[in-house]
Write a protein that binds this DNA or RNA. Structure first.
Length: 441
RNA sequence: GCCGCUAUCGUCUAGGGGACUAGGACGCCGCCCUCUCACGGCGGAAACCCGGGUUCGAAUCCCGGUAGCGGUACCA
């Protein structure tokens, strides 16, 4: 088995594209086949080195390794020219100067459901001769039988007047050349398949199997785009998601394992993925569920792994202590700093929190806490908890009325990791200094 | 317009003629846990697009309608 993923080199790897890549990869890995990368760049303008590198980088981040490529369509141009020659010589294609207007006029004469049929003019663009009778049909691995009448299809242009190939010809020839056995792509290519089948048939070759994945939509049912938040793999990465969680979530978008399992490791995904079970209707990308799933994966990370992920995300390697006390509160890597940044940067500025917790009573409590923590030994979590608990009891207050003023003094805001852990991580000097600073406000 | 694809809770889905008072997950609501926020636990509301057929029996099969999406380039 040889499958190929063929992204357009537009610079960003769209989430829908990432899912297509994932399904190709799962299929290849599950069957011990080859995963080939081909860059669709018939329109040479877009395939800049930077754009291609960004796509490859997104794939690397997702840990979808490829066995061959990237192969550039343009590098196969000689083969495309040969194919055009074969078509012309075999009488399966002809040269025509017919314009879009000519095509429209033809339809006015023969009816809207009649495809354009031209004459050989010996010059102009190269058009494939589409048969008038019969259907072009194929058994799609996802959709099932797809059948379309030949008479409704225009004689399609396969190469420009200057001989350069067009997409449908390039794809058909490349898939043949690379000996691709399974083409898995988005449903937006479904109607291209009949054209490619016609080209392959005219070339006398055998077509690969096809599987068309349902498209991905945003929360409003419209095509997924920037305005829905993250729309590309790069944005997912920047939003602090874990590759394994993204793979798990994407795999379940349009495919179900068939039972009630939701959290599936990549090994499980490979083992159980079945292209025939892929959903036929389009799915909406729901970032809330991804966040939940990412949280599950975050909590399964060891402290070492989490610290490494944070180091990679924030570019600093001193985050371990804060990671240790905040791990179960994080859904994404990006949530770490808003929650724990105060440990490194000092208390944040939150007037409402000061107003609420650092009034006269709060300050009295802080003084008592300061005195209790000042001389306590050792300065560790159990003794901190005991010391603070004693303050609660002595003053006859609810725990929160003691802990929240302290929290606001240390973090500046009413939300932080557990208070005992936070005090321990900050250390005595920093805690006493922050309490004093809060009292001096 | 024409050609094609699709249709189960708000969302992702299970369902392959009787096991369906339609199951799970996210989200939402309530309760519990609790130093905040989370995590976790328990409970709840929430769906078969509409109309015909086939059948003893339809979410499931067929047809029609409607809706959504895609394609309809000398773009990819």
């Amino acid at each position: 088995m040889r499958v190929r993923f063929a992204p357009s080199p537009t610079g960003s790897l769209h989430i829908g594209g990432a899912r297509t890549a994932l399904f190709n990869w799962l299929l290849a890995r599950g069957a011990g086949g080859r995963f080939v990368l081909r860059i669709e760049d018939t329109d040479l303008k877009r395939s800049t080195a930077e754009n291609v590198e960004q796509i490859l980088d997104a794939l690397r981040w997702l840990e979808l390794d490829w066995d061959e490529g990237p192969v550039f369509q343009s590098s196969l141009e000689e083969r495309h020219r040969e194919a055009v020659k074969t078509l012309l010589e075999g009488g399966r294609a002809y040269r025509s100067n017919a314009t879009a207007e000519d095509v429209a006029a033809f339809k006015r004469r023969h009816g809207d459901d009649r495809g354009f049929r031209g004459e050989d003019e010996g010059e102009g663009a190269i058009r494939l001769r589409v048969p008038d009778d019969g259907d072009t049909a194929f058994e799609d691995l996802v959709v099932g039988e797809v059948r379309s009448p030949n008479r409704a299809m225009d004689d399609l242009v396969v190469a420009r007047a200057d001989g350069t190939p067009l997409y449908n010809l390039a794809v058909a020839v490349d898939d043949l050349d690379l000996e691709i056995t399974h083409v898995i792509r988005g449903n937006d290519h479904l109607t291209n398949t009949a054209k490619q089948l016609l080209i392959i048939e005219a070339l006398g070759a055998t077509a690969p199997r096809y599987a068309h994945l349902p498209l991905l939509h945003g929360p409003d049912g419209k095509k997924l785009s920037k305005r829905h938040g993250a729309a590309s793999v790069q944005e997912l990465r920047a939003a602090g998601y874990l590759p394994a969680a993204v793979r798990n979530y994407l795999a379940l978008l349009g495919w179900g394992a068939g039972d009630d399992e939701t959290i599936l490791s990549t090994q499980e995904l490979i083992r159980r993925f079945d292209i025939a079970r892929v959903q036929r209707n389009p799915a909406q990308f729901d970032e809330q569920k991804l966040r939940w799933m990412n949280g599950r994966y975050m909590r399964e990370l060891s402290l070492e792994e989490l610290t490494a992920a944070l180091a990679d995300f924030y570019g600093r390697d001193d985050l371990g202590p804060a990671a240790a006390i905040s791990a179960e509160k994080l859904q994404t890597l990006a949530e770490f700093w808003p929650l724990c940044g105060f440990i490194y940067d000092g208390p944040v500025d939150d007037p409402a929190a000061r107003e609420r917790w650092l009034g006269a009573e709060g300050r009295e409590v802080l003084v008592e806490i300061r005195d209790a923590l000042a001389s306590m030994e050792p300065f560790d979590e159990p003794s901190i908890e005991a010391a603070l608990g004693a303050v609660v009891e002595r003053r006859g207050l609810k725990p929160r009325d003691v802990y929240q003023p302290l929290r606001v003094a240390l973090a500046g805001r009413p939300v932080s990791p557990g208070i005992f852990e936070t005090v321990a991580v900050l250390g005595r000097d920093a805690v006493l200094a922050r309490i004093q600073a809060a009292l001096n406000l």
